[in-house]
């Protein structure tokens, strides 16, 4: 299992080094031509992998940028990736909690009310085909003009993105019990609340975790994009934007990898909770 993955990863790293040399070579040749010097191959190698503003930073430069951002700075410093990562993470988590909570509530309504099912469900499905992220700058500016700033506008965008996957997934999950099981509860004269807590809710848990994984990744994207219009207010999105303004490629790549680590961590946490829960329920291996 591990060997093929590691092989592919090392091939990627090798390709990355090759691409870094190839893409950064132009700059080295230009510098040498201006100085009127010739570049040997070993000088080319050394230079392309150590430039300050490379077109493509080499993996070790990104690793050094990450190390610098995580461990070499005080966590309250504006250059610390922990500081920016925490800003993004807090907005992500708040938005994720709001969005998935509201999504579950709406799904309960959809399953128990036929009029709601028929009116809201088609829109919830259709909304998945819409590039919702486009509204992000507007939400930030409008909320700022009403006087709401800070973490909340970003959380609103995150919540909005994480909302619909949960609605669609949970509406499916609450309906997943088979008719025979529902009939069984009817013969027990169970109330709707009892049916919900003892049958529908436990049956929907696999769907819940599947949609939570999708929606936590979506809410991280929402938080990052929500930080773009806010400018220098901090966060990984602001890091990406200022890096692209000033050509600080290493900064961009470090922010990108921090975001990737965050996303992977969040999805893995949910995966671990999923595994533990489903095992205790006797549903997963």
């Amino acid at each position: 299992m591990l060997v093929p993955v590691l092989t592919v990863l090392s091939v990627i790293v090798v390709l990355w080094y090759g691409a870094a040399i190839w893409l950064n070579a132009q700059w080295t040749y230009d510098q040498a031509a201006r100085a009127g010097a010739e570049v040997s191959f070993s000088e080319l190698l050394a230079d392309t992998l150590t430039q300050d503003r490379p077109v493509l930073p080499a993996p070790h430069q990104v690793a050094a940028g990450l190390w610098d951002g995580f461990f070499a700075q005080k966590v309250t410093s504006k250059r610390s990736l922990v500081y920016h990562g925490w800003i993004t993470l807090s907005a992500t988590l708040l938005g994720f909690a709001i969005g998935s909570g509201a999504g579950i509530v709406l799904a309960v309504g959809i399953v128990h009310n036929r009029a709601m099912d028929l009116s809201v469900m088609p829109w919830a499905i259709a909304s998945q085909t819409i590039p919702i992220l486009a509204i992000a700058p507007m939400v930030i500016v409008v909320l700022a003009s009403v006087g709401v700033t800070g973490i909340l506008p970003k959380a609103v965008i995150s919540a909005y993105l994480s909302f619909f996957p949960v609605v669609v997934g949970m509406a499916k999950g609450f309906r997943s019990p088979r008719p025979m099981q529902l009939d069984q509860l009817r013969t027990y004269n169970a109330t709707r609340a009892q049916t919900f807590w003892k049958l529908r809710f436990p049956a929907s848990l696999p769907y819940l975790f599947a949609s939570l994984k999708v929606s936590v990744a979506a809410s991280l994207v929402g938080a990052i994009v929500g930080e773009l219009p806010a400018g220098g207010a901090g966060g990984l999105g602001a890091r990406l934007l200022s890096g692209s303004y000033y050509g600080q490629t290493i900064q961009i790549w470090s922010a990108l990898f921090t975001a990737a680590i965050l996303a992977a961590g969040l999805v893995m946490i949910i995966g671990a909770i999923e595994k533990a829960t489903l095992r205790r329920m006797g549903m997963g291996g």
């Binding site: 993955v5 590691l6 992220l133 994984k213 934007l241 692209s244 790549w253």
Partner: peptide, 27 residues
């Protein structure tokens, strides 16, 4: 072999905030 190597990597990348690569590609 390639499938077993590429699929976990692909699944991983599919969950990442890939939009973040936009500033690099614009550059």
């Amino acid at each position: 072999f390639l499938q077993r190597g590429l699929l976990p990597v692909g699944n991983f990348v599919a969950a990442l905030p890939v939009v973040g690569i936009a500033p690099i590609l614009v550059m």
